[in-house]
Design a protein around this nucleic acid. Structure first.
Lengths: 218, 218
DNA sequence: ACCTGAACACCGTTCAAGT
DNA sequence: ACCTGAACACCGTTCAAGT
């Protein structure tokens, strides 16, 4: 676990190690003590690089935002936003712990600010008014965050698992107690080819269509 | 803190006390030990009512879903979904800790199942196909969860605080580094009457309009 | 049946002391 | 400047023992 100590540790190395640990075992298992061990040092040494654990949490969330791409080609704003949405969804899925931290982080880091600035710029250049761009940004991120949040709390990952689970649940719960959930399980989730994730793009396009009317108006 | 012991403790009393503690000090301060004290007992006694802390977390999330209203009048499905969305947003705001727990909860409780069933039923009766209802439900909840998640991570609550903070940030950050954020701060957030929360309903209506086309199609 | 004391293996963080 | 040992005030959970 402990790696050979290089000449000197940096805050960046500590933060990267924290991301790695959280990816592996979840944010709950990422303690200051384990992080120190991972980085070849005692826990107390970390306080030379970080004021406290909160600062560390801010930093690892900022790493995630740094991984979200803002596409360069802006000739089609909807396509640019579509690509960004997919990149954001991938980053948030790669780092399952990120969304759970977000509601307690109120200090955005530089990567977060840069990302937000780039997205706003893209929307403004596409013709959105200032309030329109603010609305578009908030709506798009709401959709992305919320979708991923639901995705992460699904108790299955593959469609085989989905079918298996839907089946198990149907056995247990009386159909007349939750008739519409039962109908959904049998008529939709258990059908061949079902995938929750496949609904990301169609609904995103619904949102993008709605925003086009906001853009034209403004 | 410790309250006089009634004849017997129940799981429900323990869960309600946990919600109260989490509301007061955040989910991080709600430890099994403090919860036990709140309920007038030693920590170990709680394990007679709950297998472990995970079961407790499942239970308090289920309480939140139980507080979300599903309106009875379904003559207008959009209005029914609008009211549900507002009720959900209020519940998630009242219990700030709920969203942060959701991505680690994969075992929905009875109130959660009942709520989901009721919403699906409303959509089905309004004429949505089964896949359409699934899409509508996922999109609406994505929007609600994501909007509240962003709302909770805003570093301000009143519009006065928003103006104050935008002002502070503008002082610190060079305008040419984040030009569009600067523009947004000056031209939108700092304008009189600005309120992030006020954008909830307009964007929700954009989503509802998009879903009307899904309903008609299916 | 319900509760508890003692114990175990953990936490984040401070502080004074080392090199 | 960078690291550490010892200590403090916490965690969740198990287990054997009490009533």
């Amino acid at each position: 676990m402990a790696r050979p100590r290089q000449s000197a540790l940096t805050k960046e190395q500590v933060v990267r190690a924290a991301v790695r640990l959280a990816d592996q075992g979840g944010v709950a298992t990422m303690s200051m003590r384990k992080l120190a061990a991972e980085v070849g040092v005692e826990a107390m040494s970390l306080y030379h690089y970080l004021a406290n654990k909160d600062e560390l949490l801010d930093a690892i969330v900022d790493v995630v935002f740094g991984e979200i791409e803002v596409p360069a080609d802006e000739s089609d704003w909807q396509q640019a936003m579509r690509l960004r949405a997919q990149s954001a969804r991938e980053a948030l899925t790669r780092h399952r712990w990120a969304l759970g931290l977000m509601d307690s982080r109120t200090t955005p880091g530089p990567a977060t600010l840069h990302h937000h600035d780039a997205v706003l710029g893209c929307l403004r250049r596409a013709g959105f008014s200032l309030p329109g761009a603010a609305q578009a940004f908030a709506l798009l991120d709401s959709y992305i965050y919320g979708f991923v949040l639901q995705e992460l709390s699904l108790p299955f990952e593959t469609s085989d698992e989905a079918v298996q689970l839907a089946d198990d649940i149907l056995q247990q719960m009386p159909a007349d107690e939750y008739p519409h959930l039962a109908e959904l399980a049998v008529g939709h989730v258990m059908q061949p080819g079902y995938s929750y994730s496949d609904e990301f793009l169609p609904s995103l396009d619904l949102v993008l269509d709605g925003l086009e009317s906001v853009r034209i108006r403004g």
